[in-house]
């Protein structure tokens, strides 16, 4: 008898702590959507030859805005399905955690966009395009790492992959063989597309298993 109430109390504590701290929306669909959009956008960037810095910034800013909107819609749909508030405390905490790094990325992009000199194909601008892409990757990693404190631990590792990958490519510099605008879209496509898709697939199986437990 005594074991029962003690075990029940522990279960209540566990449930409440999870509800209080951990973000409980399924992230596999969000990651897969973002991955598909990132990969598709990189391919579109190559095909459409988006090679000027301003066009590059504008193009990826639009992709980012669409990805954020799509993610919010998916999360909102899940919340409605579970009859829970969309703007729950964990959602708010995660947004607050991600915001500084994302805003920094936005500001860096806006400043570069505003300061681009008239010659869109100059070497400086092409270098700037690569550095901008890598800055976005690193800042996005920082955003995910911060959010990871309110999400499953894997999110922080995912954030680290962006931070270390972005810094690693900074250190390696620009390879001679690569067409610079193709390389810049490639970086975006790999980090914001392929990595998200891979993590989405991983989450699809692990989240499903957790739900079955």
């Amino acid at each position: 008898m005594e074991t029962n109430w003690a075990a029940e109390h522990l279960q209540v504590i566990r449930t409440l702590m999870e509800r209080s701290a951990v973000y409980r929306r399924a992230l596999a669909p969000v990651m897969t959507l973002n991955g598909a959009m990132g990969t598709g956008a990189a391919l579109a960037g190559w095909v459409l030859k988006i090679s000027s810095l301003r066009a590059f910034i504008l193009f990826w800013a639009c992709v980012g805005a669409l990805a954020v909107a799509g993610s919010f819609l998916l999360v909102r749909r899940q919340a409605l399905k579970e009859s829970e508030p969309f703007w729950s405390p964990p959602t708010r905490r995660i947004t607050q955690a991600m915001l500084p790094a994302l805003v920094a990325g936005f500001i860096v992009g806006a400043v570069v966009w505003a300061r681009v000199v008239s010659a869109p194909e100059s070497l400086d601008n092409m270098l700037l395009m690569l550095w901008l892409a890598l800055s976005w990757v690193v800042l996005y990693g920082c955003a995910f790492h911060a959010a990871g404190f309110f999400m499953p631990r894997g999110m922080r590792i995912f954030g680290w992959a962006f931070i270390l990958g972005g810094c690693g490519l900074f250190a390696l510099g620009i390879p001679d063989w690569a067409d610079r605008f193709v390389y810049a879209h490639g970086i975006m496509g790999f980090f914001f597309g392929v990595l998200h898709l891979a993590y989405g697939v991983y989450l699809y199986f692990t989240e499903q298993r957790k739900n079955e437990m």
Binding site: V12, I13, S20, P89
Partner: peptide
Amino acid sequence: LGIMSMLAASPELSFTELRDAL
């Protein structure tokens, strides 16, 4: 116990958040 559990997992919570969650 509910209040303590919620607060143990979070740096801080507003009165409204606690009231609604519990």
